[in-house]
Design a protein around this nucleic acid. Structure first.
Lengths: 130, 130
DNA sequence: TATACTGTGCATATAGATATATACAGTATA
DNA sequence: TATACTGTATATATCTATATGCACAGTATA
């Protein structure tokens, strides 16, 4: 399966964390359903050109958070997650990041109506396909 | 002067980086004008309960980026920065963080009109004073 | 059963963020 | 001049993220 996992090695955000967040988005967003196999640790490591340890770390975090299940010798699979839990992850993740963006704008001395204007402009650009 | 610098020691973001970003916002946002003194390295370190090294690192970064000037023995002061440069920092910083928030929402499978709705709700909450 | 996949565990290494401590150097002012 | 502020420099230590390498263990299948 072709997974749209993309990492940036220059980012301040740790690689394993980038991987975790992207899988969370794919699972909570419904693009990966329960039982779907994830790439093997070795395959993903090779794809992203990172060490097995880093991929392993990401998968361990995802398992701890309940998003995936690993079965030794068989592989790694999307876990069964209650719909409302997925929805909660989705809602709070997005809410938090948007709220943080608004707070940052306010800290730069924009007022609320200016923030709204900037935001609507960005949305319009996205609609046009950037 | 009472500066609204607040750090989180649990954050994944390095402390020196949090300090840099907050001063950048204060300066580019116009809350600190050229020549204004910053707290001494020792005073800020004591206030925030962090080591002098960390504060120093933050101030060095800010100086490298041209936002402040340090004078040995005298103190640290907001640098003279062209208005249009300040404006550019302000605009791009805010634009980037909002665009990133929108992209995250899209990665969670929200569509643009849903993102808009969430955003407007958050803005309304802010207007009411949270 | 042999082979080729899966995941697991461990020992070790490097780099960066951060910390502590100590000493040095420039400046202002009573 | 004494003292109390400033910033500067350096040596050392800890923690975390990340890396490499190697060996082990479970599973599927020809």
């Amino acid at each position: 399966m072709e997974l749209p996992i993309r990492i940036s090695k220059d980012s301040r955000e740790p690689i394993y964390h980038q991987i975790v967040n992207q899988f969370k988005a794919l699972i909570a967003g419904g693009h990966l359903s329960a039982g779907a196999p994830l790439p093997s640790i070795r395959a993903l490591s090779k794809d992203l050109e990172i060490s097995i340890i880093t991929t392993r770390r990401a998968y361990q975090d995802l398992e701890l958070q309940g998003f995936i299940k690993t079965l030794q010798g068989k592989g790694t699979f999307v876990a069964e997650i209650a719909e409302d839990l997925k929805e909660e992850v989705k809602v709070t993740s997005v809410h938090n990041i948007i709220e943080n963006a608004v707070d940052t704008a306010l800290s730069y001395d924009y007022n609320l109506s200016q923030v709204k204007e900037i935001f609507l402009t960005i949305l319009k650009d996205k609609e046009k396909g950037e």
